[in-house]
Amino acid sequence: MVHDPFKQASSARTLSAPPSANDYMKDIVFRAFAYFCASAIILLVVYIVFEIGSEALPAIKTHGLGFITGTTWDANKGEFGVLPEIWGTLYSALIALVIGGVFGVGIAIFLTQSFVHAKLELVFRTTIELLAAIPSVVYGLWGIYVLIPLLRPGALWLHETFDWVPLFSTELSGPGLAPAALVLAIMILPTVAAISVDAFKRIPYRVKEAAYGMGATKWEVILKVMLPTASSGILAGLVLGFGRALGETMALAMLIGNVNNISFSLFSPANTLASLLASTFPEAGDIEVQALMYAALVLLVITFIVNVAGLAIQQYTMRKFEGKK
């Protein structure tokens, strides 16, 4: 018999068989499940907000807005106020942002503007990425036993020499804002660096070529052309890094000292919303738990606003560059 490839192909069972009724059923169920999972994320966020909100409701009714401006946290007297925590959260995150921001953007420039050989670049990139992989508690432990002893002599000198500067007005007697903010800076550095690297890579190569063509030096190109062009992407990285810093818990709970205190001093102990939750919640009674839920709600609102702002800037940047292609 003559070999007939067409006949052979038509009799073979291949994918080209039309989907059976069973396949269509599976398709419908599968897609419905995928749809459900995608909506589950929305439901989850709504549920989180609703759950924390409703747990906090009794405390909101009792304390009202005075909760946000109050400065004492005393479970025995039933007095709850989170102004020192809000201050500590914002202040520590801001210091971390300044340090982490300078380093993050610096590293982004270092990694994208051909300063090093591609292989060495990979080493540095991996190092920065692994910084993000180290768990928060490990940074806390490292902070207690390495960073604080390391900072103390310098902090003591700064305090003795410049004690009229509000930043150095107290002694570093152990845990405090400076080690906490430094660890925080290390933790947000990878976020800032990764998003800034992205922003730099998005700039078309011809922008850089044009600047070089006009005789600009390497750093003139970076500072006057690349940095302004990438600025909105870098801003997104900074805002999202700030959001990370606001919500970071464990390292701060271990390093900041957990003292309700509003001070400009870098060396005084302070407290943040997240570390208040971590350190107080396990032993709290019912009334205090409600107050803590209120504090959690405040933290939720602050981080939500910061994160949405960061994402909005990021999306604006992406659209800007995609439009220009």
Partner: peptide, 28 residues
């Protein structure tokens, strides 16, 4: 719409303080 909102909220959720997940599950 579901996909857009869900993608956006997923991004917001990645920036969430992890302790809030603990508080949420404590409540639930």
């Amino acid at each position: 719409k579901v996909a857009t909102v869900s993608r956006f909220l997923a991004k917001v959720l990645t920036g969430f303080p992890s302790i809030l997940a603990g508080i949420f599950v404590y409540g639930v």
